[in-house]
């Protein structure tokens, strides 16, 4: 009680300020403490719902999966027996895992690369002055609205080996039928087509938004300098899209590593083909977990997939840093300067 009387009234307005040397030590009352905590803690409190949710539905399952991956788990009885790292070894020694890894990357490349090229092209076309702008822009997004399983069902039917629409047209014009469900490469092409159908429009819109943010003065200046449309595209549009392109590449990498609906619906068994032609990692995980009810091995595979995604994420980060050089270097320098001033 006596201490509060020694407090100078002015300091109440700035409770966080350090007391100047030589003055008597001020002890804050409960109210002041409260408002100081309010200032310090509130931001964390406001963002805490996300992190609490993340801990419950994100971190906890990840940790629990790690526990299960070391056990021979019985789903029905909800109990397991500790068996160590044997299930990781089993996964890594299983040739199906490596086939699945190959297929995942193959489908990822076959979908992402053409998808990006086509998306940039369509976005560049939509960026020009055309009639019915909104109609065309909304149209490219329509496939994205369709449920992936519906897309997969329709396309799987089109890519039937014998009675499929695509092979029907090919044989009608005298070309040989394509073994969509037999040859690994062609099955990947078919699945990548479904992915491309769904995601090209989405990426187009993101790239279009980035293109519209490019100042029109650049193009006017380039036109005055005599640069043609193609030169303007390569020298102005593409360099300005760098940051957006990296975002699009990262999202499609994550999507590509998690590809599941399309290969699952590609035939009636959903097991990835008799010779694992289109078995992807997530599909392999599903087969082990929900086909064989072997949750121990499925959990081990989930952790291996988790590590692969982290690894790819790190590679992405490194590539991003070198690609977006201008922003990547300016930021740390600016921070150093600030620090220097403070010191």
């Amino acid at each position: 009680m006596t201490t509060t009387q020694t407090r100078p009234p002015a300091s109440a307005t700035e409770p966080a300020a350090a007391p100047p040397a030589g003055r008597p030590v001020r002890v804050l009352g409960f109210r002041q403490n409260l408002s100081r905590w309010d200032l310090k803690l509130s931001p964390y409190l406001y963002i805490s719902p996300f992190f609490i949710m993340f801990a419950v539905v994100g971190l906890f399952p990840i940790g629990y999966t790690a526990v299960i991956s070391l056990m021979d788990w019985d789903l029905v009885r909800n109990s397991g027996e500790f068996i160590g790292f044997g299930q990781y070894v089993w996964i890594l020694q299983n040739p199906q895992f490596w086939t699945a890894l190959r297929n995942t990357f193959s489908i990822f490349l076959l979908s992402s690369v053409p998808q990006l090229i086509v998306a940039i092209f369509i976005a560049a076309m939509l960026d020009r002055n055309i009639r019915g702008k909104t109609f065309w822009r909304m149209s490219v997004l329509v496939p994205f609205v369709m449920a992936p399983v519906a897309v997969a069902l329709i396309f799987s039917n089109m890519f039937g080996d014998v009675h499929g629409l695509v092979n029907g047209i090919l044989t009608d014009i005298g070309l040989p039928a394509v073994p969509w469900h037999k040859d690994p490469f062609w099955s990947h092409v078919a699945i990548a087509t479904m992915v491309n159908f769904r995601w090209t429009g989405y990426n187009t819109l993101i790239l279009l938004a980035a293109m519209q943010a490019i100042p029109r003065d650049y193009y006017e200046a380039a036109t005055v300098d005599g640069a043609g449309a193609f030169r303007q595209f390569t020298s102005i549009t593409l360099p300005s899209l760098k940051a957006t392109l990296i975002f699009v590449i990262i999202t499609s990498t994550i999507g590509g590593l998690q590809i599941f609906d399309e290969p699952r619906m590609f035939d009636n068994t959903g097991e990835g083909g008799p010779a694992q032609q289109w078995l992807t990692i997530t599909l392999f995980l599903y087969n082990i977990g929900w086909g064989e009810w072997n949750f121990g091995r499925a959990a081990a595979l989930a952790w291996i997939l988790f590590l692969i995604i982290i690894l790819i994420g790190l590679i992405n980060l490194a590539v991003t840093r070198t690609l977006v050089r201008d922003e990547g270097i300016r930021a740390p320098k600016a921070r150093k300067k600030q620090k220097g001033v403070r010191a």
């Binding site: 039917n157 039937g160 014998v162 009675h163 009636n268 068994t269 008799p274």
Partner: peptide, 15 residues
Amino acid sequence: YSGQWSDDWFASMAN
């Protein structure tokens, strides 16, 4: 066919 229940198999059955 090799196995049953595929889309092609059902189409052949209907044909």
